[in-house]
Computed example of a mutant assay.
Amino acid sequence: MAAAVDAVREAFGELRAGNFVLPAREVFGDGAVLVMSAYHSPTRTAVVKTIGIALDQVPAIRATVVWTGAGEQLVADGTSITTLRTGAVVGVATDLLAAADATRLTVIGTGAQSADQVRAVLAVRRIAEVTLVGRDAGKAAALARALSEEFPEVKFGSGTDIDAGVGDAEVICCATSSSTPLFRADALPERVHVNAIGAFRPTMSELPRDLLASASLVVVDQEEAALEESGEVIDAVESGALPRTSLLALGDALADPPTPSGRTVFKSVGLGPQDWAIAKLLAES
């Protein structure tokens, strides 16, 4: 995960520098199938990912990644790459925006993305306590047990009460397919960093409008993608609660790091350069 975080951080620098050709994501069948691609001009390498999504199945996301370079090609399981690169970008954002001494993490959601959300935050912060919150108490407890074996130095807990889970958190990761906000802004501490990666359609939303309106920083992976695909960002901007000019692209934030205070938010819908970064690591290993 640490290598993935570094690779994704570098990829966002390359994106800001204009070194990627990044076509818009193709969406078919009302979001049942997605196709993402990215071409890195300096290395003349490209990645293409096809994704099938069925939220009523396990796993909900099945994908294949093809990475192509000069005279070489790699085909890999896109499902694993997606969870890894999504975790990695959360690691990048958490390292940038969360309190340096943060020790308490809450993850909302217990699906395929959740474990790599935990791994990513633990890669950039000395987290002592992790709370896993999900609708299914048994599933949340099972994930906590599995992760406690991987990270025996960390205290893991689980439950179904979201408000209780976020009440004293210093870092929060939202990894659900919710169509309505998961919590109220007034349930959060005054100083907290919130990552949201689960909602990837305009009809989906994990964050309340008033959190985006009151946050000191709202960072997105890319402004254009967020305004096209993030339900919570679209709602906040169209309602006037969040000025579009307040959105800060991750690449810009990395180039000129802000001074975080109060509540901060990172919203990701996922970009091709993230897949490219992980596939490149695989190709070079």
Rank of each mutant, 00 (worst) to 15 (best):
L147R: 03
F156M: 06
T94L: 01
L34Y: 12
Q222L: 11
M1E: 05
C174L: 13
R119A: 15
G29I: 05
V133Q: 04
V171L: 03
V92N: 03
P189Q: 12
Q113G: 05
I81Q: 01
T45S: 15
V233R: 02
V171F: 07
A175V: 15
I127P: 12
R62G: 01
L22T: 01
E190R: 15
L147P: 08
A4H: 06
A196N: 05
A88F: 04
T203W: 09
W276Y: 14
A225D: 02
N19L: 13
T45I: 06
P202V: 13
V192W: 08
A32F: 07
L188V: 12
V194A: 01
A213Q: 08
R201V: 00
A46T: 13
V269W: 06
A76K: 02
S216D: 15
D136G: 01
V8E: 04
S230P: 09
A175R: 01
E14K: 12
V269K: 09
A241F: 05
L188K: 08
L250R: 02
G69A: 12
V237G: 00
P23E: 12
S285H: 13
S177L: 13
T68Y: 08
M1Y: 06
T180W: 00
A4M: 01
T131M: 10
P152A: 05
R126L: 10
Q274S: 13
H40K: 10
I108R: 00
T103M: 07
A11N: 08
T50K: 09
T79A: 10
V220C: 01
T131G: 09
H40G: 11
V35A: 12
A196S: 15
R85A: 03
T94W: 02
D161H: 03
A100S: 09
I81C: 01
G251L: 10
S148F: 00
F200M: 08
A253K: 01
E238C: 03
D163T: 13
G231C: 04
A236Q: 02
G31F: 09
A112F: 10
P152K: 06
Q117A: 10
N195E: 07
A115H: 05
S158D: 05
L254I: 03
A32S: 14
P273N: 05
L271M: 14
A249M: 02
T259E: 14
R184V: 00
S37L: 02
I51F: 01
V265S: 03
A46N: 05
I61G: 01
A140Y: 09
A7Y: 04
V48H: 14
E149L: 13
L212N: 07
